[in-house]
Write a protein that binds this DNA or RNA. Structure first.
Lengths: 346, 346
DNA sequence: TCCCGGGCTGACAACGTTGTCTAGGCTCTA
DNA sequence: TAGAGCCTAGACAACGTTGTCAGCCCGGGA
């Protein structure tokens, strides 16, 4: 009796299976399977009986078991930095739409910019046997994915390149975008331009810094070390860095901000200033046009990044397994809204 | 020979299984299982041999099969409206963090505000046998989830209540928040206050409208129908509605905006005006403090909504199945930044 | 009347893992 | 030295589904 109790209690909801449906409808197991999957070769009368049993029992096919049998899960994984970051929302959504168009479900997780957590998450997704993986890298060594890729998990990296392995990659043109943004400031008369960005170990940050230096060099302008601040994205440090380069012996008249979080903080700092300072930021953000002045930005298209990556992924899944890994770069767009066109003061 | 080829080719990457590992290590299948799961009762020497075989073959446990055997998937589903909406990013992230703390993976999908798609998505997640479901409803009839809930899928609704079924629900105090926001405008001298919100069939929109009316009534103020615009969230219509109520024979001196998208558009309209108009919006948004004037808002805590819902979910999963469904309301917070404290003109 | 073909249907194995149960070898004690 | 008891290890069934294959029934042609 104790055993019986445990038997029925073992899991809270003991869901009906095809076997239960078959028993109730008085048919064979396989017939239920056929009905559930809309296969042909079932008499209308039989089908009706099965349907009734399904309704009555509240049966729903167990896709876990199905997956085990079929080998494909019709799901893909997305590892990103932080879903709460407004840059990744549209990206994630774009990936989801492409997945949906291919009948696949999206499972996503945030790495919180922690390489270990990225790995943990990516491997957990592989253990779930996702068919493919879209990764926004937090770390710079992805050799841990090699066995998975070899085993057939299609993998595409987005926003930042893969580290130490060959794989499809979809990037924005960070170098070109930053160079254009800085050149824009130069074209408006600025000669002393500051750069505030993230740590150069992050590929995007390094590329943007390179773009900054290239634009300065192209214009024959020297860069004072005091104008460049790296590894600073949290508000406090950005504030300190901005104030420092604005008050030194050779103060900058314009700032190029390496990403949207930096830009927003710099806007706050500049708002407290009496003299006007020009600003161009990398990444667009909502309401940039409503500020006074509107914030000029180098915009990347997050949705396009996601869409391109996902499409590449499904192309691989649909048979193009042996195509060589490719690196796709998407153009950025300079949007002038006022802050980048402020002339140098003094 | 053709058969052999098909046998090995059938799926692109034929991943090694525990059986393969066992064969290579010269041990039994179950021993591999023990090593993989860190169970006790394996000689260090045996364990080493198994580990080597795992390395060599690039084995990774198939969680699909594991799930089938164990009955629990250690994953929960989240159905939300649109991941690209900045309100849902933090909410989703909060749910994810709670799930992670419970060792579960989050699978999420967007309903795109389409009831059919919400249902399709929720049922797909149930077919994957998620242990629980967090739903931000798009539709207003959730009876389709009854069999699932009965079968043991813990379900919590967030942001909007479930339709036609009993279930746990976590909401913001939309009524109280809107009432407070409007009362704030009244306290600053406004008598003619407009309301622009979404369709009242959406619960949150209806509650906020109710709050608006309550505040007006509490102050003994009549509401002119021309001051109330419903079912308008797209920029064009909001613009038209705002302009209409600002230019009528009895123009409003203040506007209460029913959600963040509306607020932003109204800010744009007001920016083009010469005379000052007061504004309070429901929902906070980034940079609201940087605008001129700063935008006063009734803020709801998206992360807290997600966290509360997820915690409730796991409490159910951890044994509290038979607790009666509950409705939890989280307080909102009025943040004064300037736009809501503008005195009435004229 | 018999045989054949085609349309339905169900029995059975397999997917990769884990729980149960039993076997064998070892140590320890009387 | 025998027996008890413990520790390690593996054989086997089961999870819920789908692919394969074989059997049944019915109608039509010889």
């Amino acid at each position: 009796m104790a055993e019986t109790a445990r038997g029925t209690e073992s899991r809270y909801g003991n869901r009906p299976t095809m076997k239960d449906v078959a028993a109730r409808a008085g048919v064979g197991l396989k017939t239920v399977s056929r009905v559930v999957n809309g296969e042909s070769g079932v008499t209308p009368d039989t089908e009706r009986r099965v349907q009734e049993a399904i309704e009555a029992l509240g049966f729903r096919r167990n896709d876990s078991a199905r997956v085990l049998r079929k080998g494909r899960t019709a799901s893909i994984g997305l590892v990103l930095e932080d879903l709460a970051d407004p840059f990744y929302g549209p990206l994630s959504r774009a990936v989801e739409e492409v997945a949906r168009a291919h009948g696949a479900l999206l499972i996503n997780g945030s790495s919180a910019e922690d390489p270990d957590r990225e790995q943990e998450l990516a491997l957990a997704l592989c253990a779930r046997r996702v068919d493919g993986l879209v990764v926004i890298p937090a770390g710079d060594d992805h050799r841990y994915l090699e066995p998975e890729i070899k085993a057939g998990v299609a993998t595409v990296f987005v926003d930042r390149p893969a580290g130490r392995i060959e794989a499809d990659t979809v990037l924005s043109d960070n170098f070109g975008g930053a160079r254009d943004g800085v050149a824009h400031l130069i074209a408006h008369g600025h000669r002393r331009i500051g750069f505030i960005g993230d740590q150069p170990r992050i590929h995007t940050a390094a590329e943007r810094l390179r773009g900054y230096r290239a634009a300065m060099e192209d214009a024959g302008l020297a860069v004072d070390d005091a104008w460049v601040s790296l590894g600073t994205t949290d508000a406090g440090r950005v504030r300190t860095a901005a104030e420092a380069m604005l008050t030194g012996p050779d103060p900058v008249t314009a700032i190029f901000a390496g990403n949207n979080r930096v830009t927003v903080t710099v806007v706050r700092v500049l708002a407290g200033l009496s003299r006007p300072v020009a600003l161009v930021g990398f990444d667009d953000f909502e309401l940039a046009d409503l500020l006074q002045p509107g914030v000029s930005v180098v915009a990347q298209d997050a949705a396009a990044l996601g869409r391109t990556a996902a499409e590449r992924l499904f192309r691989r899944l649909d048979g193009a397994q042996d195509v060589a890994p490719e690196r796709i770069e998407l153009a950025t767009r300079l949007i002038a809204r006022g802050s980048g066109e402020v002339p140098p003061a003094g």
